[in-house]
Design a protein around this nucleic acid. Structure first.
Length: 508
DNA sequence: GTATTCTGG
DNA sequence: TTCTACCAGAATACG
């Protein structure tokens, strides 16, 4: 959402909406959707660019309100004309691609839902982050000392190039043959360093340093700068036409990648708090939504039954694949089954699986074979998706959202395989996006029509975060759960887990 | 502007 | 024989 339905000047847009970017996003999500490109592509016409009026992006760019009316006139009229011409074309294209319903009933209603969420924003405990920042600074400085001492010199730790030269040319860590990036310098990514962590203590220190600097620069220092002066809250911008699968994306700031996986990182979530002492955050999370969708779409009875019986799906998978009783599944077996379950969604290969687990390539191949024996319909579903893509040139979600795969018949095996993985992944990821969008629209409607005080604040792909007035705490929980679990009925039940707390860490 | 790295689902 | 997981955004270095 670049433009919000409610402007900051008290004007509320009414009536039927049509948005050429959203329309084109449904017609072909992989392409660009800005008006200039659309006009060139569909009207063979290059409109007067906005930059000729306000200058290029940057500090010298002026505001449209400072441009003379006479100059604006031509631009504005052309803008309206081009938009209208595109609308005529896209209306028939939506019909042709059978995405009209998706447009009218999901994407367009979602516009005002997102506008309200963006306008609402979420409160940030700036004081908390400031304390965290000071503690982090001390740890970072101390690690830098240690690292420079071990390296025998000072250098720019943030430069992967300099770091690679120090570690591999000077210190000879891990022997002579080291992985290089495509530009020829040493690879120093997380994967490489973790592999070498036991060779020299400096490696672990660098990993720690990297993590802390990341947290400091991307979150702890950056988030407080994004607090709005008027509302004292952070207002993310949801992009509705960026992710080719149908997901939303979030920026300025991105609130869809706030840390959670490491202990140090997840502390940052304590900074996202309820609006005041009369409110509580509720986080509502779809449990395993993508696996449930692939189970339903494939009609794989063994997997469907596991979900219907409310089993731990990774454990249940392990029991079947390794042929052991449910209560004798080891931690490692469950972990490996979990990796394959996720791998299926991404288009698993023996190589990829062996990279993600401690298994060798042949063990991985054997595991995948046992997996398909357990869930035979999954294997045929994957083949059917690829076959569908080859014939039609696209795949689709449960709501008919399309993704075109131009490389599906490519002679280049690498390119073709990537398209085949997309043929499997896009309907799964995209259908999950469809489901949560339906839930968001329905919940937003209820909150408005029934005059709830509580607000929906955030969406993180399979999670919704609400700022709930304490008076409504008991009543809202079953409502949220019901709306999310019944957004789209399939042969597999959807399951939503709720959590509450004064901050996002406690709620999640 | 591109490459690398790392954060999330 | 090779070397790939799917979808994003942000910070930083470097040419």
């Amino acid at each position: 959402m670049k433009t919000s339905k409610k402007s900051n000047y008290g004007v509320t847009v009414k009536g039927k909406l049509f948005d050429t970017m959203i329309a084109h996003y449904l017609i072909n999500p992989d392409m660009r959707h800005n008006m200039d490109i659309l006009a060139e592509t569909y009207l063979k016409y290059s409109p007067k660019s906005i930059e000729t009026l306000i200058g290029k992006k940057g500090k010298n760019q002026i505001s449209m309100r400072d441009v003379a009316l006479e100059e604006i006139k031509e631009y504005a009229a052309e803008d309206a004309d081009v938009t209208f011409q595109l609308k005529e074309i896209f209306t028939s294209e939506l019909d042709k691609t059978e995405t009209k319903k998706l447009f009218d009933e999901i994407e367009i209603p979602l516009v005002s839902v997102l506008a309200d969420m963006e306008t609402e924003g979420i409160r940030l405990d700036v004081e908390f982050l400031s304390i965290m920042s000071k503690e982090m600074d001390i740890e970072i400085k101390s690690l830098e000392q240690k690292i420079y001492e071990s390296a025998g010199e000072k250098f720019n730790l943030a430069s992967p190039k300099q770091l690679g030269d120090i570690l591999f040319d000077k210190m000879k860590i891990g022997g002579v043959k080291q992985k290089k990036t495509k530009t020829g310098q040493y690879a120093t990514g997380e994967e490489v360093l973790t592999y070498l962590a036991n060779d020299n203590p400096i490696v672990k220190e660098i990993l720690d340093w990297r993590q802390m600097v990341k947290l400091q620069s991307t979150y702890i220092l950056a988030l407080p700068e994004q607090v709005d002066k008027k509302t004292l809250r952070v207002h993310t911008d949801y992009m509705q036409t960026v992710a080719a699968t149908g997901r939303l994306s979030s920026n300025n700031p991105n609130l869809q990648n706030i840390p959670i996986r490491t202990e140090r990182g997840r502390q940052i979530r304590k900074a996202f708090v309820a609006r005041d002492e009369n409110h509580t955050l509720i986080s509502a999370d779809y449990s395993q939504i993508e696996l449930r969708i692939i189970a339903a779409l494939s009609g794989e009875e063994n997997m469907i039954k596991a979900f219907q019986d409310g089993e731990d799906i990774h454990k249940a998978t392990a029991a079947k694949v390794f042929n052991v009783p449910l209560d004798e599944v080891s931690r490692e077996q469950r972990s490996n089954a979990k990796t394959v379950n996720f791998g299926i969604i991404y288009g698993v290969s023996a190589f990829g699986l062996s990279n993600q687990t401690s298994l060798s390539r042949s063990e991985s191949a054997a595991l995948i074979e046992a997996y398909y024996k357990t869930y035979p319909r999954l294997k045929s579903y994957i083949s059917e998706q690829i076959e569908f893509a080859r014939e039609k040139g696209y795949v689709q979600t449960i709501l008919g959202r399309r993704r075109y795969l131009k490389d599906i018949n490519s002679a280049n095996a690498v390119v073709r395989s990537a398209a085949e993985r997309n043929a499997v992944n896009a309907p799964i990821q995209g259908s999950a996006a469809d489901v949560i969008k339906i839930a968001m629209i329905n919940i937003h409607k209820k909150l408005k029509e029934e005059n709830w005080k509580s607000k929906m604040l955030l969406q993180v792909h399979d999670e919704l975060v609400f700022d709930v007035h304490n008076d409504e705490l008991e009543k809202i929980q079953p409502m949220i759960k019901h709306e999310m679990e019944n957004a789209f009925i399939m042969s597999v039940p959807l399951d939503v887990e709720l959590g509450l707390g004064k901050d996002w860490l406690e709620a999640h």
